[in-house]
């Protein structure tokens, strides 16, 4: 599947969601914990000074970015990192895009700075 020659809106939207998801230290912590074990939302809430409701919102942001999925087990909501290949591939390629956008911006800055020197 080729995701467009030009960055299309869906692609940009997915990248935005990923950035937003990773922009918060609590959500990065959720990702780490969900990768190591399969914690419940209430167990995650106990690890941080926030309510279960607030934790549910954080998990929902990660779900929209396709980084985690939620599963109902009895009365608990279990959070796990999504392992389906497509979501992982998208996350990895989005990560590379973000990394290279940063690098290209720094290249541009170097060219500008050096031009100023000569």
């Amino acid at each position: 599947m080729v995701v467009g020659k030009n960055p299309n809106q869906d692609d940009d939207a997915a990248t935005d969601l990923l950035f937003k998801a990773l922009a918060d230290p609590i959500r990065r912590d959720i990702l780490r914990r969900a990768h190591e074990s399969r914690p419940s939302v209430s167990a995650l809430a106990r690890e941080h000074p926030i309510s279960v409701t607030a934790m549910q919102k954080h998990v929902a942001v990660l779900e929209r970015a396709e980084l985690v999925s939620k599963q109902r087990v009895g009365r608990e909501s279990i959070v796990q990192t999504r392992s389906d290949a497509l979501a992982r591939a998208r996350a990895a390629l989005d990560r590379l895009e973000a990394q290279w956008r940063g690098r290209i911006e720094r290249m541009e800055q170097i060219l500008e700075t050096d031009k100023g020197d000569t």
Partner: peptide, 24 residues
């Protein structure tokens, strides 16, 4: 913004990014 194109292929696992600069 010098980035002019981004192309991701989820099957081939490639990401191609193209940027244009005022330089040779």
């Amino acid at each position: 913004m010098p980035v002019i194109d981004v192309d991701k292929d989820l099957d081939a696992l490639t990401m191609t990014i193209t940027a244009e600069f005022e330089a040779d």
